[in-house]
């Protein structure tokens, strides 16, 4: 079983990203489970959402404590939230950022990828310039980082489920898929 934790802020589409990724993985033949952090959501406040993937029916119905990978939709969370909490060593951290974070050694146990989802979302006019909706771009990037589901499954999930601007959202996902930077194991990147 693979467990993924999404970090974002209320209003960025974090919960929707985890649901749409569940639908994309389901199309790709996985059994899936997706749920938000159970609590009270507020715009701008840190939010979390979770995704479980397996080839057989998922029986566990508890919170996610030790994710295999994390996705960070808002780089300002890196300072206030422990995004590596419980993260399994060797897991991917995908960050929405134009470049790798400065304190790379903090992430020495993990693999790092980054994508400028904010710029991509603004270019495709998703949300506003001050509050871009980055979730669909992050979905495209995440599909590339894990090597699955196929980009087509992500596109299909967006086409079916996103009521506003599906074409622009699909274009953003594709651009992020193509432009995400896979730094790989941070320990090696730091020592190089």
């Amino acid at each position: 079983m693979i467990e993924v934790r999404f970090h974002g802020r209320g209003g960025q589409g974090t919960v929707v990203a985890s649901i749409l990724m569940a639908k994309a993985f389901f199309q790709a033949g996985y059994y899936v489970q997706s749920f938000p952090l159970f609590g009270v959501e507020r715009r701008g406040a840190p939010v979390e959402a979770y995704l479980r993937l397996d080839k057989t029916k998922i029986l566990v119905r508890t919170n996610v404590y030790t994710p295999d990978h994390v996705v960070v939709l808002d780089p300002t969370l890196l300072e206030g939230v422990d995004i590596t909490r419980g993260l399994k060593p060797g897991g991917w951290i995908l960050i929405n950022a134009p470049e790798a974070p400065p304190n790379l050694h903090t992430y020495a146990d993990y693999k790092l990828a980054h994508v400028d989802a904010t710029r991509i979302a603004i270019r495709h006019r998703l949300g506003t310039r001050t509050h871009p909706i980055v979730n669909t771009a992050m979905m495209g990037a995440f599909a590339r980082v894990l090597g699955e589901p196929p980009l087509e499954a992500v596109m299909e999930a967006i086409r079916e489920e996103v009521p506003a601007k599906p074409e622009a959202n699909m274009a953003a996902a594709r651009e992020a898929y193509e432009s995400v930077v896979l730094l790989g194991p941070v320990a090696e990147a730091v020592s190089a």
Binding site: Y31, V32, S34, F35, P36, I58, R61
Partner: peptide, 12 residues
Amino acid sequence: LDAFFLSHTYEP
């Protein structure tokens, strides 16, 4: 049904 663990969880 249980709150959240069932009501707010997406699955096939």
